[in-house]
């Protein structure tokens, strides 16, 4: 795993997002979905739907990171693209009833930073993975 930056990033991000998802369950209170939520670490606003998304994304990243480099690469690019989309679309949803994930400004910064790292790692590193497997 230490030979592949994609597996390393997927494993670390997966573990962190799983932890964030579990911690969020304790602060979300009775907010399941909607613009209101509890503050995680005093900054990030979450509700239970947001926590479920964190748990699902964390599990997918961790599983892929522990499995193989192509799997980690694929999940990194996919999750990165989804977070990038959420970063831009989420901004237009804040303050409306459509903000079902209780997104706030700190969430947007975290999502954009995660998107850049995941997408950048998936697209820029381990480029020879497929050809190595093909020739092996």
């Amino acid at each position: 795993m230490t030979q592949s930056p994609n597996r390393l990033v997927a494993t670390i991000f997966g573990a962190v997002y799983l932890l964030v998802g579990v911690l969020g369950l304790f602060v979300a209170g009775s907010n399941f979905a909607g613009p209101d939520g509890g503050l995680l670490l005093g900054i990030f606003q979450v509700n239970h739907l947001h926590n479920i998304a964190h748990l699902a994304i964390g599990a997918a990243l961790l599983f892929a990171g522990l499995r193989s480099t192509p799997a980690a690469k694929g999940v990194n690019v996919t999750v990165g693209a989804v977070y990038l989309l959420l970063g831009i679309v989420g901004f237009f949803l804040v303050g409306t009833a459509l903000n079902i994930l209780a997104l706030n400004t700190a969430d947007h910064i975290l999502h954009l930073a995660s998107a850049i790292v995941l997408l950048g790692t998936g697209l820029a590193l381990d480029r020879g993975t497929r050809s190595q497997h093909a020739t092996a």
């Binding site: 613009p35 209101d36 939520g37 503050l39 900054i43 990030f44 606003q45 901004f91 237009f92 804040v94 303050g95 409306t96 209780a102 706030n104 400004t105 700190a106 969430d107």
Partner: peptide, 14 residues
């Protein structure tokens, strides 16, 4: 941006 001006700062919901 216009979208950001309508955004509610964190922790102010509810």
């Amino acid at each position: 941006t216009e979208a950001g001006r309508h955004a509610v700062p964190h922790g102010e919901h509810g």
